[in-house]
Amino acid sequence: MSHRARDWQSHPPAIDAGYKSTALRGPTRPLIPLPQGTATSSGPVYGQDDVRAIDTDLTMNGRTNGEPLGERIIVTGRVLDDAGRPLAGELVEVWQANAAGRYFHDGDQHDAPIDPNFFGGGRSVTDADGVYRFTTIRPAAYPWGNHANAWRPGHIHFSLFGPTIASRLVTQMYFPGDPLLDLDPIFQAVPARARDRLVSRFDIGVTQEAFALGYVFDIVLAGGAETPFEGDR
């Protein structure tokens, strides 16, 4: 008997025919379970002092000479473990393209403008109820080379730790109603039953009058519930 944290019914495969980069990068051999009692029951300790208040507001932390362009939005949600417990004090790291679909990254060659007032990186720490909150600019779609006329739907990258290394998660948040979701191999690689968990929900309650639309994206990390299995994989 052993335990795994990740519920593989919720996650994409290592190699996906539609997402071409997986062909040479995804492991081909079965993952090996850790023997009982050998899992590392702790997780990274980092300096929360490093998290600046301004980094929850991506419309502020990249300014050089004015306001960033694009549609202001608020993105908020709860971080839970899979037993349903809110996770307080958790670091949430995000990064994203700007309103033109361009990343502030030397490797992004897409012919769309850099916004001198938008960096696209942010960090937040969840409160006592497990809630994080960012103010940002809605990221646009951008083309990529996976196949002919391939476009990534607008998305925000999220990185979270949770209480142990088994709860680590890197994912992407999408927007409701985006027609590119049906055509995106990275989103479609997720089992159909789990895809809607990556799509944020528009929320008029989070929306701030005359300021910004609000989206809710709750995140559930592995490792809170025991998931015993008998070498079935």
Binding site: R6, D7, S10, H11, P12, Y19, L80, D81, D82, A83, G84, E93, V94, W95, Y103, F104, H105, G107, D108, F119, G120, G121, H157, S159, L169, V170, T171, Q172, I186, F187, V190, P191, A194, R195, R197, L198, D218, I219, V220, L221, A222, G224, A225, T227
Partner: peptide, 19 residues
Amino acid sequence: MAEKQTPSQTVGPFFAYGL
């Protein structure tokens, strides 16, 4: 499980300025 896990997605090529 009380809650279903959020699916994983790739870190992508442009993580450097964020992480």
